[in-house]
């Protein structure tokens, strides 16, 4: 709970400072927004790490193949980063570049998920043939 209060305080401070600088020097406002979101994301990422370790232990215990869990975690990481970059670019007014970054993130996720999909399709084909 105290972590959340710190994050909210940081967000407000960053927002106010960015607002004060935006009129004269808009590029510094984007810089302040970028450093603020990077600090908040960094502190949240630490706690997400703990959650992931806990989930990994649970999936290992209940016998699910750990390979799929690793892919899920990678996809979450890629989405995390792509969304971070796209929001900052959209904030600085570069909507075209932001959508390109998001498209690149989706393609990265697709390449990560492809082997799972193919193995699943092969499984379906085998089941259908064995009937």
């Amino acid at each position: 709970m105290s972590e959340l209060v710190k994050i909210i305080g940081t967000g407000f401070i960053g927002g106010m400072l960015a607002l004060t600088v935006r009129k004269q020097r808009p590029e510094f406002a984007v810089m302040i927004a970028l450093i603020t979101s990077a600090l908040i994301l960094g502190s949240v990422a630490e706690s997400v790490g703990g959650i992931i370790e806990e989930l990994r232990r649970v999936t290992e215990e209940c016998g699910v193949d750990i390979k799929y869990f690793e892919i899920i975690i990678k996809v979450v990481g890629v989405a995390y980063l792509a969304q971070f970059a796209a929001e900052i670019l959209r904030d600085s007014g570069e909507n075209a570049v932001a959508s390109k970054v998001e498209a690149a993130g989706k393609i990265c996720i697709l390449t990560l998920v492809l082997p799972v999909m193919t193995s699943f399709l092969e499984l379906c084909i085998k089941v259908v043939n064995s009937v």
């Binding site: 994050i7 940081t10 401070i13 960053g14 400072l17 960015a18 020097r25 510094f28 302040i32 600090l39």
Partner: peptide, 21 residues
Amino acid sequence: MNVDLIFQIAGVGIVVAVINQ
């Protein structure tokens, strides 16, 4: 979570804006 980075960048921004004027 060191907030002083934000203050540093804001400080540089304000100083540059003032000097610019």
